[in-house]
Simulated scan of single mutants.
Amino acid sequence: MIEIQHTLVHEDVFSENFVCNLEKCKGACCVEGDSGAPLSKTELKVLEEIYPLVKPYMTEEGIKTIEEYGTWVEDFEGDYTTPCVDGNKECAYVMWENGISKCAIEKAYLEGKIHWKKPVSCHLYPIRITAYPEFEVLNYDRWHICSPACSFGNSLKVPVYKFLKEPLIRNYGEDWYKEVEEAAEFLKEQQS
């Protein structure tokens, strides 16, 4: 683990390569899993506020799910997540383009309808954050559905931290990310 300000960053974030390859995985991370995308408490209100502007991009099943359960739910572990269609299928905020699942929230953002891109946990994937009272731990999450992203990242030689530069800065700021880059250089020198 590498300590950067109030976080501990697993070395895999520096050493593993990753670039999403939607043509290969078809956006499976928005469709598979045990529950919806993890949400922070501050994101709950945001979802409630933006839902009317995101709704036109959503599927009928997603809208029905939101109208039945709300814009967010509490999962079986007591964590807040996005609701899933039929309780365990795709995220309610999924939309489909050319057979690829995409985020209706992000689509509304890209079209200028809202000013919030998507839940931070989605934006940061494959990094998963575990929060403790004094610090946060950033781990690289390995999931078989992302093997095309690992292969693509390896071919392009793009480490996880570089692929996730935008969401890491969104969550932790420019100064924090500069320290990540310095840590990456230090690790590279250590390996030489």
Rank of each mutant, 00 (worst) to 15 (best):
H6D: 13
T7G: 06
L8Q: 11
D12F: 14
D12S: 15
D12W: 15
V13M: 06
F14Y: 15
S15A: 08
E16H: 11
N17H: 12
V19P: 03
C20T: 02
C20M: 02
C20N: 04
L22Y: 12
K26S: 12
G27W: 00
A28T: 12
C29V: 02
V31L: 05
V31M: 08
V31A: 13
E32Y: 08
D34S: 12
D34F: 12
P38F: 00
L39K: 07
V46H: 11
E48V: 10
I50L: 10
L53I: 03
V54M: 01
K55L: 07
Y57I: 04
Y57Q: 08
M58H: 02
M58Q: 03
T59C: 08
E61D: 12
E61V: 04
E61P: 13
G62Q: 06
G62K: 08
K64Y: 00
I66G: 10
I66A: 06
I66K: 08
E68R: 08
Y69K: 11
W72M: 13
V73T: 14
E74V: 15
E74C: 14
D75P: 09
D75C: 01
F76L: 07
D79I: 01
T81E: 03
T82Y: 01
T82W: 01
P83Y: 08
V85C: 02
V85I: 09
E90D: 11
E90V: 03
E90G: 14
C91H: 02
C91I: 01
M95R: 11
W96T: 07
W96D: 07
E97S: 12
E97G: 10
E97F: 13
G99N: 08
I100A: 03
I100T: 12
A104G: 15
A104Q: 05
I105R: 01
E106D: 07
K107W: 05
K107F: 05
L110E: 12
E111N: 14
K113V: 11
I114M: 00
W116L: 01
W116D: 03
W116M: 05
K117V: 02
K117G: 00
K118V: 02
P119A: 11
P119C: 09
S121N: 08
S121W: 01
H123K: 02
L124M: 04
R128W: 01
I129E: 03
Y132D: 11
P133N: 00
E136N: 11
V137R: 13
Y140Q: 03
Y140N: 02
D141I: 10
D141K: 15
D141H: 14
R142L: 13
R142S: 14
W143C: 05
W143A: 10
H144V: 11
H144G: 11
H144C: 09
I145G: 12
P148L: 04
P148K: 06
P148S: 03
S151N: 13
S151R: 10
G153H: 04
G153A: 03
G153S: 07
N154H: 11
L156S: 07
K157Q: 09
V158R: 08
V158C: 08
V160S: 11
V160I: 15
V160Q: 06
Y161Q: 08
K162A: 10
L164W: 05
K165G: 08
E166R: 05
P167S: 00
L168F: 00
L168K: 02
I169K: 01
R170T: 02
G173M: 04
D175G: 04
Y177Q: 09
V180C: 06
A184R: 06
F186D: 15
L187P: 15
L187S: 15
K188T: 15
E189P: 09
Q190G: 14
